[in-house]
């Protein structure tokens, strides 16, 4: 196979055969090397979180990737292709321009027994963002997620000063022996951490000093979304969680162990 080995002869057969063989081997290993180099670069560029979301997002069932505008009924059956990052979405921008958001409702809304306070914006990963007066934002779990997690067994919050990015890992929680990555709703630097007992988790200094909220759901949009989310949870479970039209309080206990992962995956958008 290698010129110089016992019995090697240059014949057309050898030339063709070995030519093809080496080409194949070279292509395979170059491809592998290419993937490795790219991976190394991405890793060095701290793109891991973005990639994780990108990969997760594409692995989500199409139904879970429904566009916010489809949820509100503005459009029919639209599936998001941008990882819920409406900031980059032309359609969103166009729709926003065409139909500027109506005046916010007067009072907190509610969907299927989940309260959606007005002072905050909602992320598809079931977090909310509340701009504070000092220019920071507070990030917490919405009611569905809070009830699902109840009191987590363990929470690992990022240290202050750590940069987080939209759809990257905000923090991690453990419950019922499995872990949940809560997606960060904002880009920014962690200023302080709270916890379940405080009702909020992170205080974040938004990147570039101000909150770009285009990708976050306004409370009025959040209601249909939340109803849809409750529906999804119920499908996953295969039985109703409603208790007289209102979602059961102790959701975290009501979910059977074998469905826990599936429910968390559905709620927190991960695979």
């Amino acid at each position: 196979m290698f010129p110089g080995i016992d019995g090697f002869e240059w014949t057309p057969g050898h030339l063709i055969f070995l030519g093809i063989f080496y080409t194949v081997v070279a292509v395979v290993f170059l491809t592998l090397a290419l993937a490795a180099v790219r991976a190394w670069r991405s890793y060095r560029a701290n793109r891991a979180e973005a990639i994780r979301w990108q990969a997760d997002f594409h692995d989500l069932p199409a139904r879970d990737r429904a566009c916010r505008h489809a949820l509100t009924g503005e459009m029919r059956e639209r599936v998001c292709e941008l990882g819920f990052d409406c900031r980059r979405c032309e359609t969103h921008a166009r729709l926003l321009e065409e139909r500027p958001p109506a005046q916010a409702p007067a009072a907190d809304t509610e969907a299927g027994g989940v309260r959606l306070p007005l002072d905050r914006l909602y992320h598809r990963g079931h977090t909310w963002v509340r701009p504070e007066k000092d220019g920071t934002v507070t990030v917490g779990l919405d009611e569905l997620a809070s009830r699902l997690m109840g009191t987590p067994d363990r929470v690992r919050l990022p240290k202050a000063g750590r940069r987080i990015s939209v759809n990257g890992t905000g923090w991690r929680m453990w419950k019922h022996g499995s872990d949940v990555r809560v997606l960060s709703p904002v880009d920014g630097e962690v200023a302080a951490t709270g916890g379940p007992e405080a009702g909020w988790y992170l205080k974040v200094k938004p990147a570039e000093g101000r909150l770009d909220a285009r990708h976050l759901l306004r409370p009025d949009e959040a209601a249909p979304w939340m109803r849809r989310e409750l529906e999804r949870v119920q499908w996953t479970l295969g039985h109703s969680l409603a208790d007289g039209g209102v979602m059961v309080q102790n959701l975290s206990e009501a979910v059977p162990a074998e469905a826990w992962d599936a429910v968390c995956a559905g709620v927190f958008l991960q695979v």
Binding site: T31, A35, A36, R38, S42, Y43, I51, R52, A55
Partner: peptide, 13 residues
Amino acid sequence: PSFLVFEFELHKV
């Protein structure tokens, strides 16, 4: 993360 990234890049090729 490194495995995750590698998987992603490998998938692309």
